[in-house]
Amino acid sequence: MNSRLSAAVHGWLLLMPAMLLLVAFTHWPAVASFIESFSSTPRPRRPSRFVGVANYEQMLADPVFWQSLANNLWFALGTIPLAIGLALLMAIWVNDRIPGRTFARMAYFTPTILPMIAVANIWLFFYTPQYGLLEQVASGLGFASHNWLGSRETALAAVALVAVWKESGFFMIFYLAALQGISPTLAEAAALEGASRWTFFRRVQFPLLMPTTLFVLINAVINAFRTVDHIIVMTRGGPDNATSLLLFYIYQVGFNFWDTSYAAALTVVLLAMLAIAALVQYGWLERKVHYR
């Protein structure tokens, strides 16, 4: 009994350093945000007090919140399938024995290594009106000038494209690892049966990659609702909130308007949505994707 107790103590002592950091910087802030979301923002003359669900009511009536939520859903809908599809395509391509395979793999992975801030600045140049890369190509081909980030219609799509460019290489690595886990004799067996490349992908590779797809999907959803860096660099939520995503709006409310309690309430909603999404994906999809 004594030795079991001391083993438990040892275990907890070993967990302690990491646990302390997690509690101090992750768990406690989460709980604190949750508590703060039910209080008013402290002002120099008015200390914080309990306000119940007032912050949440404010949210329901806040058009910018709804706009950000809608933007974020469109952003997710646009980026996730595209990034995953591209990742899969690239992974299958560089999984084959092609000349320059290592170079292609590296090239696809490079955007992942770059900091988002740097990526955003590169794309800012691409999108710049008059002398940006896109503009030069477009005008060279005789198209009219267009301010990609400056107009309501294209701004969200433009920032979404940057996210796809940045993320698909990262997801490709997971697919590549999974593809290499598939025994090459399966491909040979399928080839003997006369299965075309497409049939083999559809009937064998894709189903066997489902666990990876689920994992990537969850990551992609989280990333889509966590995007803020390149919005800050490229558009600051503009024009007219057309590219304001939830996390960016939280940042704005919290650190530009200093309405920290309202920001806390927004954070709680965001976390709740992500938790539900993850639960649905793991709980519902997982039963369909594992074969072993």
Binding site: S183, A189, A190, L192, E193, G194, A195, R203, V204, R292
Partner: peptide
């Protein structure tokens, strides 16, 4: 051909494994 590792498709049932080639053809 029968492979040393059998090369069965892990996500398909036995029946589907056996019929894989006939379906492809």
């Amino acid at each position: 051909m029968v492979f040393q590792s059998y090369a069965l498709f892990p996500h398909l049932s036995v029946g589907e494994n056996i019929l894989f080639g006939l379906k492809v053809r």
